[in-house]
Simulated scan of single mutants.
Amino acid sequence: MPLSTALGGTPSCIMDGARLFAPNGLRRKKAGSSMRLCEHCSRRHWRAKINPATGLQVKHKNGNKVFVCIYCGHVQEEEHLFIPPKERIKANILYIDLEISKSVYYNYGAKVPSKYLRTDDLIQENYMLGWAASYMGNDRVWSQFVTPQAARAADESGIVKRLWELMDAAEIIAGHNVDGFDIKHCNTKFDKHGLPPIVDKKTIDTLKLARSKFRHESNKLDYLARWYGLSGKEEVTDNDWKAAMSGDKKALNKAEYYCRNDVIIGKGLLDKFLPIANKHFRFGAIKKETYENEK
């Protein structure tokens, strides 16, 4: 028996010339993007079909919600397939870490009279030395750092697109101070190089979780990792960062290893924090090809 015959339903609206009104005089809104065009009149204005006994929206036996076309009264269910909660796969969480160079300014000695240095004295703004990223539940770590020539030219253009592609494919982006540092720096660099900022992603910030759920002596990643029995951060000195900015190949390799290790221990810390995050990261079926098809 067709769904429209089984569920019945009559339109609860009237036509007044070219305008469409509900019985109470209010316009009906379009349904969500999960609804197709009406199979009878090829329009797409729907209202929920309500069960008068329960006051709840009628659902098909497969779990799909049922709607009524407000033009012709045809009854139709949602387009997407319902995925029972027990069969859903956890959303893919991408853990990221950035390494940003220092900015270079002119200044009269070490003392700064005001709170900030003047932008008129800026010689070279900071740039992205490199990044590392990895999905939770997957051991593979991606990373990309500037070449020695690009470091000397402060040119990050060769490494930002790949990071943007990974972040755009992820459902959730995680990191230590990811909200206060990584996302903001990423969006600044993306915008600079003609890529749209990442603004519609959920995030998990382990620094915020450490501050809100615990009272550790320090909330630095190295301290927290060692406190939870994980390996600590690699040691990189200020001279190493200066050498990397000047294009020293060994220093850049050391910085990349340092960044990749931060991602590994950061993922371990996130594993410890997820049970107390008070968030349920189950969005439905995900495409594992996000990382399985990478070369």
Score class of each variant (00 low, 15 high):
V141Y: 11
D168F: 09
A153I: 00
H45M: 08
N126S: 15
G137M: 04
E156M: 06
L129R: 02
H45G: 04
K111M: 14
H176I: 02
I159N: 09
R36G: 06
I123G: 09
L37M: 14
A132H: 14
F67H: 12
I96K: 11
W142K: 03
E78D: 01
V141H: 06
Q124E: 08
H45S: 07
P85W: 12
W131L: 02
D179A: 03
I83C: 07
D97H: 07
P84R: 13
I96T: 15
W164Y: 12
S101N: 12
E156S: 11
N92R: 07
R44G: 00
V104L: 07
V112I: 15
W142R: 01
K115M: 11
A133V: 00
V141I: 15
Y106F: 15
A31V: 02
M128Y: 01
P52H: 00
S101I: 00
K90V: 07
L166P: 03
I50S: 09
C41A: 02
I50Y: 04
N64A: 07
H40Y: 04
G158A: 08
S33R: 00
C72L: 11
I83T: 13
C72V: 08
Q149S: 13
P113D: 08
C38Q: 10
G55Y: 09
K59C: 08
Q57R: 15
N64P: 05
E125R: 08
C41D: 09
H40T: 03
L56M: 04
Q57V: 12
D139R: 08
D168Q: 14
R118C: 11
F82C: 09
M136Q: 14
I83N: 13
V112P: 10
N64S: 07
G130Y: 00
P148Y: 03
A154Y: 03
D97M: 07
G109W: 08
S34Q: 04
N64D: 05
V58E: 09
I83E: 15
Q57G: 15
C41H: 07
W131H: 04
D120Q: 13
A48C: 03
E87T: 10
G73L: 10
E77K: 14
